[in-house]
Nucleic acid binder design. Structure first.
Length: 375
DNA sequence: AATCCTTTGAAGAGA
DNA sequence: TCTCTTCAAAGGATT
């Protein structure tokens, strides 16, 4: 486990790096409830293999095989978990070298080039920059104008906006080491670490490009120069800059509606009372990792089902080296830090109950069912 | 249309 | 302090 910090002095925050990975046994306990059945896994496995064999071009074959291996391993692991019945927790995830011996190299993704992966862009929650725009782990691949001028990219992913950011970018707060600054148009202006830091982690802003955290704000910029908060529409930060962590109250649907308004109705009707926007939780390390790697896994596996992809990503996450994970923990820490600065009074509790969940009832039911099965 | 599934981690609530 | 719950992303599947 990444013992990044506690020793390192850098308050990597919370204890995120120090938290032990859940033992497999912990997950096993859920398995009977969540019904990731052998059949499902077998289907996943076989579909992966088949798709790999059928669809993958030779060059991508190794990746497809690897992906299939992921699925197979997952399947086998689940079977083993069933057999062990949660009694024997294995060594904590990522240092289970033997079990994941095939993984570590996976994340040395030099092949994760800007144009290789399938864009995972969703029409539900648009992502400002598809993760193939730049990979955080390949900091030597900075933003380039090519990304913005490429015909396939939306015309509103403008270089001029980056330039604006660049022009007005203030000196960065020591607390905000440039992590969220949108890279300017110049390659040379991005240090390797900046390239990593510049990776978008929040959904697309209504303007059609990912708005970075407003560094000026975090540095204590004057609010008075900006629009009055009451005049802001959902998704806008108090600066008037749309912030990706802010979404309209009721989620994706509203976000779509909101985007449509932004696109088709440049002057949205005033009649609508601006609902109090929802400020999303900052992403944790694994979420950041998933966001980064999802496109790659999708490309490799020709899978799109997020549940299956997330399982693979979970495995790969455990297989990451300490250093690799540290990057994400660090990024997540900075995310939280900046989030706290941007929304000082915000609490995760604010979003409680905004999702209607049937799961809990289901789990209760299943648990009662389990109680029936368990002696 | 709304919710589920699936993952890990952070944070809050309650015992 | 410990345990449990909820939410964060994502997109196909299910209700």
């Amino acid at each position: 486990m990444p013992q990044l910090s506690s020793g390192g002095g850098d308050d990597l925050g919370a204890n995120d790096e120090m938290i032990s990975f859940k033992d497999e046994g912990d997950q096993e306990e859920k398995i009977p409830e969540n019904a990731f059945t052998e059949g499902d896994l077998a289907d996943l496995k076989s579909s992966l293999v088949n798709e790999s064999e059928i669809n993958q071009i030779p060059a991508a074959g190794s990746e497809a095989i690897r992906c299939a291996q992921d699925a197979v391993r997952l399947y086998q692991q689940k079977q083993a978990d069933h057999m062990e019945d949660g009694v024997k927790p294995q060594d904590s995830g990522m240092y289970r070298g033997s079990a994941y011996s095939g993984y570590p190299f996976l994340m040395l993704s030099d092949s994760y080039l800007p144009n290789t992966s399938v864009s995972p862009l969703s029409n539900k929650v648009p992502v400002v920059q598809p993760s193939h725009a730049i990979h955080p782990l390949t900091p030597l691949i900075p933003y380039s104008n090519e990304h913005f001028s490429h015909g396939s990219h939306s015309p509103h992913a403008p270089a001029d906006i980056s330039q604006k950011q660049g022009v007005h970018r203030p000196s960065q707060s020591p607390d905000m080491p440039g992590f969220y600054s949108l890279p300017t148009n110049g390659v040379g202006q991005i240090t390797p670490s900046m390239g990593w830091q510049s990776q978008p982690v929040y959904p697309l802003s209504p303007c059609g490009f990912r708005q970075p955290y407003p560094t000026a704000l975090s540095a204590g910029a004057t609010f008075s120069r900006f629009t009055h908060p009451l005049m802001l529409s959902p998704g806008m930060h108090t600066t008037g800059i749309p912030h990706p962590a802010i979404v309209p109250h009721s989620g994706k649907q509203d976000m779509d509606h909101y985007n449509r308004n932004m696109k088709q109705q440049p002057e949205p009707k005033r009649e609508k009372e601006p609902k109090k926007p929802t400020i999303k939780k900052p992403l944790n390390a694994f979420m950041l990792y998933m966001k980064e790697m999802r496109a790659k896994v999708i490309a490799e596996c020709t899978l799109k089902e997020s549940a299956a992809i997330n399982q693979i990503l979970g495995r790969r996450w455990h297989a990451l080296s300490r250093e690799e994970q540290a990057k994400y923990y660090e990024l997540a820490r900075k995310e939280r830090q900046l989030h706290m600065q941007l929304y000082p009074g915000w609490s995760a509790r604010d979003n409680y109950g905004k999702k209607k969940r049937r799961t809990r009832e289901k789990q209760q039911d299943s648990s009662s069912d389990n109680s029936l099965h368990c002696s």
